[in-house]
C-alpha cells in the first residue's frame, strides 16, 4: 500500500528522503554496467506483479513481492523501488512525489533485510532455501506493514487506529506472499539459478 501525498508530517517525509538517498547512493555505487539490464527487468517484473490481483476469500489482494525483489537485487533494491514508485506516481497516480522517499523505504528496506537473511543460509539445501524463501517473503511484507504503521504513528498520535488497521491488513497478505515467494524462488533456482547470483 502506498502512502498518499499530503498525509505525513514534514520530519517523517524528510527522514524518508534522507534514508532513501543513502540507500540509492549505496545501490548506485555497487551497480556495475552489466547488472543494469537485470535490475531493470526485475524492477519491471515487480511493477507488473504489483498489478496482479490474487484472490483471497471474497476479496483479492495484490502482490508486493519485495522479499523476492530484495533477494534478486540486494542493495539495488533501493534505486529499483525509487524508480518503480516514480513511474507508478506518474503513470497510475499511486503514491506521490514528496512521499517518494518514505514509500521507497517502506518497500525497499524490508527487501534488503530479506536478502541479508536469505544470504546467510542460501545454497545449503533445497529444503532450507524453500523455508527461507517463505520466511523472507512474508517477513518483508510484515516489515513493510510495520514501517507503514510506524511512519503514520510518527506523524501524529491520532493515526494510531489507522496504523493498527493498516498493519492488520498486511497480515493475510503476508501468508500469500510467503507462499508465492516460496514457489517463485524455488522455480527460479531450478530453471535459471544464475538469476540468484552467487547463491
Amino acid at each position: 500500500m502506498h502512502i498518499s501525498e499530503g498525509v505525513l508530517s514534514v520530519p517523517v517525509l524528510a527522514s524518508g528522503i534522507a534514508l532513501t538517498a543513502a540507500g540509492v547512493t549505496i545501490g548506485l555505487k555497487k551497480m556495475k554496467d552489466q547488472d543494469i539490464p537485470k535490475i531493470a527487468v526485475v524492477s519491471s517484473a515487480l511493477f507488473i506483479a504489483s498489478l496482479i490481483h490474487i484472490p483471497l476469500g471474497p476479496t483479492s489482494v495484490h502482490l508486493i513481492l519485495n522479499g523476492v525483489g530484495g533477494i534478486l537485487l540486494g542493495w539495488q533494491i533501493f534505486p529499483s523501488y525509487l524508480l518503480i514508485l516514480l513511474l507508478q506516481a506518474i503513470l497510475l497516480q499511486y503514491g506521490g512525489l514528496t512521499v517518494l522517499g518514505v514509500n521507497t523505504i517502506i518497500f525497499a528496506l524490508p527487501g534488503l533485510i530479506s536478502w541479508l537473511l536469505f544470504k546467510t543460509t542460501a545454497g545449503k539445501s533445497e529444503k532450507l532455501d524453500g523455508i527461507m524463501a517463505f520466511i523472507c517473503g512474508s517477513l518483508a511484507v510484515l516489515l513493510s506493514g510495520i514501517l507503514l504503521a510506524f511512519s503514520l504513528m510518527l506523524t501524529g498520535e491520532s493515526w494510531l487506529e489507522v496504523a493498527k488497521l493498516a498493519l492488520l491488513a498486511h497480515l493475510p497478505v503476508m501468508v500469500i506472499e510467503g507462499i508465492v515467494s516460496y514457489f517463485c524462488l524455488l522455480f527460479i533456482k531450478k530453471v535459471k539459478p544464475e538469476l540468484l547470483g552467487g547463491m
Binding site: I52, I179, K192
Partner: peptide, 28 residues
C-alpha cells in the same frame, strides 16, 4: 483461494522473471 492458484501465479511470475532476464541479456 488456495495453494494451487498461488503456485500457478508464483510460477507465472517466475517465468516472467526468467524470460525477460534472458531477453535483457540478449539486448545488452
Amino acid at each position: 483461494t488456495g495453494i494451487h492458484s498461488y503456485k500457478t501465479y508464483a510460477y507465472l511470475i517466475g517465468m516472467l522473471f526468467i524470460k525477460s532476464y534472458e531477453r535483457s541479456q540478449r539486448v545488452y
